[in-house]
Simulated assay, not measured.
Amino acid sequence: MEGLNSGRGHNFRETGRTFEFQMLGQIDVDDKRYKELLARLSGSSQPGYLGRSQSIELAKECQPGDPENPNKPFLNDLLIEVQDQFEVAGIEATVRAYTAVGTPLDHLHGVDAFITVTVDGREFVCTLDITLNPDKQASGHKADLIVGEVADPNVNNLQQNKYLEQVEEIGRKIVTMLLKKVTTKQSQAELRERLYGLNQPEAGVDL
């Protein structure tokens, strides 16, 4: 059974763009405010170029919706999964999910989306690369985590269950990555054990 926008037998560049839009939505790069902010952040020396942190800032400022309640179901489901796992760990955190599709963060830094958690006033980021290209999945990526084809939950119950399992697994990997960055009074090992017991996922493992 093929998943959401399966790239089987198609041009990965074209199907990949559609896949990213279906999963994450996109930022309106033709919007006047977006263009003005891009110009201000990039300056005159390298028009259109932004470093990673500036690219994240641009994507945050120009989101198409509420990052605490994203419009796209996949991004929203992922946010809820990360929230739930932080609650299980006993960590009070504000979780937000952002699309970066179409922005310099996407084109220059290989990041299609990112999840942030704010703990005790400090923000931590986990970046995602969404792709259908198996060569890209196997050869490495610039983002913290890479996400491949995801089951379509609208097909039938079997695919819906598979989708939910995939979202849970991706969420676990995001939380594992973020736990490495979050400073708390409890040790990281204790927190991961509370979350996953002995079955701890490895951060950075490709899906």
Rank of each mutant, 00 (worst) to 15 (best):
G197S: 04
L207D: 09
D30K: 13
D129N: 13
H141F: 09
Q54A: 15
P64T: 02
Q22P: 01
S44L: 08
T184S: 14
P104S: 12
K180C: 04
N161S: 12
M177P: 03
S139C: 06
V82H: 05
D66S: 12
L207Y: 04
T103M: 10
G65T: 06
S139F: 06
N69R: 10
F19Q: 09
P67H: 01
V167Q: 06
E20D: 14
E2I: 03
L132Q: 15
L207A: 08
I27D: 08
R172T: 02
Q85A: 07
F124A: 00
K162C: 05
T18A: 13
G90L: 00
E14V: 10
T118E: 12
A39D: 15
S187W: 00
R17I: 07
V29C: 09
I91K: 04
E123L: 09
N11K: 08
Q166G: 06
L164M: 07
F19E: 07
K173F: 01
E61Q: 14
D152H: 07
L145I: 07
G171K: 06
L191R: 08
E2Q: 12
E168I: 06
N154A: 08
R8Y: 05
R8H: 00
A143E: 05
M23Y: 03
H141D: 11
L128V: 12
V101I: 10
L207Q: 08
L58A: 15
Y196S: 01
T103G: 13
F12S: 06
A151D: 05
N157Y: 09
N161D: 13
L128Y: 08
G140Q: 08
E87C: 04
V205F: 01
V150M: 03
F114C: 01
E68Y: 14
L158S: 13
A143Y: 04
N71P: 00
G90T: 00
M177K: 15
I146T: 13
E202L: 09
D152P: 03
K72N: 10
G148I: 05
V101Q: 11
E87I: 10
P70K: 12
T99Q: 05
N133K: 11
A97D: 00
V95C: 10
G171W: 09
R13N: 07
V95S: 12
G7E: 00
T184C: 05
T131V: 10
R13P: 01
V88F: 01
L145V: 03
Q85N: 10
R96F: 13
P153I: 02
T15S: 04
R122W: 05
L158R: 12
L195E: 02
G43V: 03
A143M: 04
I130L: 06
L164H: 14
L198V: 07
L78Q: 09
T131K: 15
G171M: 11
S42F: 04
G9Q: 05
P201L: 00
V95I: 13
L79R: 15
N157V: 02
S44A: 14
L37Q: 12
E193M: 10
L50Q: 12
V111F: 01
A97S: 09
V175T: 13
E202R: 15
L195D: 08
E68S: 15
G48W: 00
T94C: 11
D112N: 13
G121L: 00
E168H: 15
R172K: 15
L207V: 13
G3M: 02
V29Y: 05
G51I: 00
G171L: 10
Q137F: 03
S55C: 04
E61C: 06
K72W: 03
